[in-house]
Design a protein around this nucleic acid. Structure first.
Lengths: 185, 185
DNA sequence: TTTGGCATGTAATCCGTTACATGATTAG
DNA sequence: CTAATCATGTAACGGATTACATGCCAAA
């Protein structure tokens, strides 16, 4: 079982949409895939160099308003490698959820602690849900005729359904934790 | 922002439930927390040694049926460190979902590919849901009077709600992908 | 007798993050 | 003028996984 680097495919994928500089990839990912995939800039730049060496992408010096940058485009070889990756099965996510770990041992802490954690999480979820709705409205308008739009909405739907499920869980859990702390009195 | 090692707290937490050998921790985690937290044995053994050096746990040579092993128990100092960790906020999960990444770029592949990926995922979810139901029934009986049970059920409920949401998403997505591929013909 | 589970570890690698570093441009 | 954003990187660290290694016991 060899471990393969997946950052490369995320970057190749971005470049399959259109040409980007490293900085633009970072920005675009933050605005689009960051809910399920993120790269740090210190992974993007070295990877772009690596991909260029392997001739999967090629970079061109470019400049916008006197500010220089390097813009990359995907090569035929890069497209082929990317498509091959698209076809192979995905590795299952191996989550590490610290909040759940804490709750698992919740009996060892004061009950208000767990409650506080869950309430904080709930607040984050509400915010996140609003972001999703905003993004959904934005891209539905902006990319109305893009063949990519349906796929992007599929990933958004995943986020939205999971936020909904998580909110449900928070409500269940808060109720349950309150019941436990009442029973202890 | 210092990066803290969380394996240590997972292990301390296990030892806060009862005494364990390294191997037992591994086995118990596989059966209980593996849906949201897992450790590999090559992280458990060195960490137990480290924790012992720090006097957060202490190990005793033990033997079962002639087979020797080292069984660890948590110290007062260890309990204190663990409880402190329980109180601090959790780091948000930063997911990397390869399946979603592939679907995001789905327009660049044949539509059957994405469909296959989602259907595979759906099958895994059905299995997982059955496992959850089994575990739920088992522990509800076995730990009927344990004060830990409600907390364990809380983490299970998280899993169940998310499986349900994921199944919903699969169904939505399969429908959507079929619509797209029909439109292309 | 041989397979599988019990039991404990080391070594190597690699991925990802954090911190560090630099400098130009533009908007307020 | 100064803060924010654009823009591109390097270095170091540490955590997590994989492969490697060993050996006993029990059951089939």
């Amino acid at each position: 079982m060899v471990k393969v680097n997946k950052s490369r495919y995320a970057i190749l994928g971005m470049l399959s949409l259109k040409d980007f500089s490293g900085y633009e990839i970072k920005k675009t990912m933050q605005a689009s895939t960051s809910f399920f995939w993120r790269e740090t800039d210190s992974s993007i730049y070295p990877m772009l160099g690596e991909l260029e060496k392997e001739e999967l992408v090629k970079g061109k010096e470019d400049s916008v308003g006197g500010r220089k940058r390097k813009r990359y485009s995907i090569t035929g070889k890069g497209k082929k490698a990317f498509k091959e990756w698209l076809e192979i099965p995905s590795e299952p996510v191996k989550p590490r959820n610290e909040l759940l770990l804490k709750l698992f041992f919740g009996n060892h802490a004061k009950s208000e602690i767990g409650l506080q954690h869950v309430e904080d999480y709930r607040n984050q979820l509400v915010e996140l849900g609003e972001v999703y709705r905003g993004v959904c409205a934005d891209i539905s308008k902006e990319y109305k005729n893009s063949p990519n739009l349906p796929y992007w909405l599929i990933t958004l739907n995943y986020g939205e359904l999971h936020v909904k499920a998580s909110l449900q869980w928070c409500d269940d859990t808060i109720k349950q934790l309150k019941k436990i702390s009442k029973g202890k009195k």
